[in-house]
Design a protein around this nucleic acid. Structure first.
Length: 303
DNA sequence: ATCGCGACCTGGTTGC
DNA sequence: TGCAACCAGGTCGCGA
């Protein structure tokens, strides 16, 4: 379940191993992951062949790789996506969907020789069991793909506007968890870190945005930052070399979770069993004592 | 504009 | 042992 920390870990890996390389060939093994690209699988591959990756950027859970053409390769990992860098010839992953064979230019080889000892071709592979994720080419999207212009800045973006976020949350009637998951308000937060941030802030996810004090919104934002920062530090150390993992490192971080996935286990603060409830067709975990359900029930408007 | 829900996907796990 | 139901959840699109 890649959220911001996992995606940032992938970004760093790609920056190290893919930037500067040129696309020699592209093989789309399943059409679904490139469904958003109107060129179709063949056109997608043709448009990328011969292009060079010049950077890797991220906003929230989206990644994009600006190309030497001014366009960009835009990607989202969805629920189960991975981007891995492998030596050519290594066995295909079970759910390999797209393969990019990358070469390294002579000038780039000289430039980066001290940072990266892999000189031969490598493969960038998009692996995705459930295929909620995808790749597409964003025309002119090097700076910021227009497809994701509606996504808010994430809390690690230096230009993230905290006052703006607080103001927008406090004008909304939806529960704070739903608002944390709204990528147009704040990006990068998913179900796991939303629950963790709320546990740390001692707020129930159903508390309406417009009934929260500014300091409470600031608190949950600070906790979201803190928990994602901690995950990022751990995730960043869980791989090196060529293998850029997405799912693997969440296992490391499991041990640091206080709410998510801990149904019936004692709250680490007060010992009360953690509760699990259905929410938005998924699960929410919270401590019923530290995070009391709001007294005034939010009722959806009738008629 | 905002809210809240269902659809999209696959495969590992659970229960009968 | 076999099979079906359930569960994981990010994002989009829709109706209200």
């Amino acid at each position: 379940m890649p959220e911001l920390p996992e995606v940032e870990t992938v970004r760093e890996g790609l920056e190290r191993h893919v930037v500067g390389r040129t696309v020699e060939s592209v093989t789309v093994l399943h059409p679904r992951p490139v469904r958003r690209d109107l060129r179709g699988p063949a056109g997608f591959g043709a448009a990328l062949t011969g292009r060079r990756f010049i950077a890797v950027r991220r906003r929230g859970k989206y990644l994009w790789l600006p190309l030497d053409s001014g366009d960009a390769l835009l990607g989202h990992l969805g629920m189960s996506g991975q981007l891995v860098v492998q030596p050519p010839g290594s066995p295909d992953e079970r759910h390999l969907r797209v393969r990019f064979v990358l070469s390294r230019s002579v000038e780039d080889r000289a430039q980066r020789a001290s940072r990266d000892h892999v000189h031969g071709p490598v493969e960038l592979r998009f692996v995705d069991q459930r295929m909620f994720g995808g790749l597409s080419i964003s025309d002119g999207g090097a700076e910021l793909p227009p497809e994701i212009a509606h996504i808010a800045r994430d809390p690690f973006d230096p230009a993230f506007d905290e006052d703006l976020f607080v103001g927008r949350v406090r004008r909304r009637t939806a529960g704070i968890k739903r608002l944390l998951l709204d990528q147009t308000l704040i990006s990068g937060v998913g179900n796991i870190y939303a629950d963790e941030a709320l546990w740390r802030a001692e707020l129930h996810g159903e508390r309406s945005g417009d009934r929260l004090r500014p300091i409470q919104v600031r608190r949950v934002l600070a906790e979201a930052r803190a928990v994602m920062r901690a995950a990022l530090v751990q995730g960043g150390t869980s791989f090196d070399a060529l293998y850029v993992n997405v799912n693997g490192e969440s296992g490391y971080f499991d041990r640091s979770l206080h709410a998510y996935g801990r149904e019936s286990l004692p709250c680490d603060r007060c010992g009360t069993p953690i509760r699990r409830v259905e929410f938005m067709n998924r699960s929410s975990f919270f401590c019923p004592r530290c995070q009391p359900v709001p007294r005034v029930r939010r009722v959806p408007p009738r008629d």
